[in-house]
């Protein structure tokens, strides 16, 4: 057995990422508008007979947008593959995830604007259970992540390798702590509970919240293990000669990637099964204006912009330099 080449690692990475995208597309995204039954389109209440009339056009438009987005992803992937520009692959992976999220959010927002203008007002229930960070986060695991980042930097700084590409460790170090803020946002996020089946809605939101934390943990560990792998390879080139050790460090991030994808799909199944009989979020209005939460969301959005812009700049710089 020999050590994998840059080409083999890139091809393996692409296969892992693309297979996740394809599975998600076929299994969940294609029929997402129909998830809540014939009375809803993308979680928005629609009149009876909607799918016999305008619903058909809406569904076609949704699926056409999805297909176009995946086509764009395929074309942007074909370019680095054809030109053998392997340093484009991480930028493509990050860019495609961003395009995916932005496209779906825009599509949902636009559909809600067009179809769900005046949702019915319904009485709501407020859960008086406290949600503390410690109930959702494992502090020893968070400390371990921070320690691995610190050790990685210690390895990088003591390696003395003049050929180290500092851009990647810097970018990974910037990305990883950002997930901690995302986790806090996930813990704090909640939607008003409709009075009818308040308990079921609460359990549903709680299950999704915990799943989102697991997704973010998986993604964060993926980033942290890549940073550690990069640092170790720079500081101890002998690791490359011990094949099993080399494979271990190359494979570890992908184990976390697998866990991350598994949790995403698990969340989709949870939404489908637990949320089947429940009112979708946004299909009803609360008796009061929703202003403060928007302010809070705005603060997270500002933070998100501060976090994501340097990542995008670094990704573009890595490609064009």
């Amino acid at each position: 057995m020999t050590a994998p080449t840059e080409f083999e690692i890139s091809v393996f990475s692409i296969i892992m990422i693309v297979s996740g995208f394809v599975y998600n597309f076929v299994k969940f995204e294609w029929n997402r508008p129909l998830r809540n039954g014939p009375g809803f389109y993308l979680g928005i209440a629609v009149p009876a007979g909607f799918y016999d009339g305008p619903g058909k056009i809406w569904l076609k438009g949704y699926r056409a947008t999805l297909l176009m987005m995946h086509l764009a992803l395929a074309v942007t992937l074909a370019v680095p593959l054809a030109l053998r520009l392997w340093n484009w692959v991480p930028a493509w992976a990050g860019g495609s995830a961003l395009l995916y999220v932005i496209t779906l959010m825009t599509l949902h927002g636009w559909t809600r604007h067009k179809l769900g203008g005046n949702p019915p007002v319904c009485p709501v229930a407020l859960s008086l259970e406290t949600r503390r960070l410690g109930d959702y986060l494992s502090w020893p695991m968070e400390a371990l992540m921070a320690a691995i980042i610190a050790v990685s930097w210690w390895l990088l700084l003591r390696s003395g390798d003049p050929h180290i590409d500092w851009l990647m460790p810097l970018m990974l170090t910037w990305i990883a702590p950002g997930f901690f803020v995302l986790k806090i946002a996930a813990i704090r996020s909640a939607a008003p509970l409709p009075l009818e089946c308040a308990e079921k809605h609460y359990r549903y939101q709680e299950a999704l919240r915990r799943n989102n934390i697991r997704v973010l943990n998986g993604c964060c560990w993926f980033i942290v293990t890549i940073l550690f792998e990069v640092a170790l390879m720079s500081a101890c080139p002998s690791v490359r000669k011990t094949i099993w050790l080399f494979w271990l460090f190359v494979g570890a991030p992908w184990l976390f990637w697998g866990y991350y994808m598994f949790q995403i799909f698990r969340g989709e199944r949870l939404t489908a099964t637990l949320g089947r009989d429940l009112l979708p979020q946004g299909s009803f209005a609360t008796p009061f204006r929703r202003d403060a939460s928007l302010k809070m969301q705005r603060s997270y959005l500002i933070w998100f912009a501060v976090w994501i812009i340097p990542i995008l700049v670094c990704s573009v710089y890595a490609v064009v330099r």
């Binding site: 259970e129 909640a190 008003p192 928007l294």
Partner: peptide, 15 residues
Amino acid sequence: TLPSVRQVAGDLGVN
């Protein structure tokens, strides 16, 4: 213990 002011405000979407 009651939930924090921030949690209640966030859950209800009020100030």
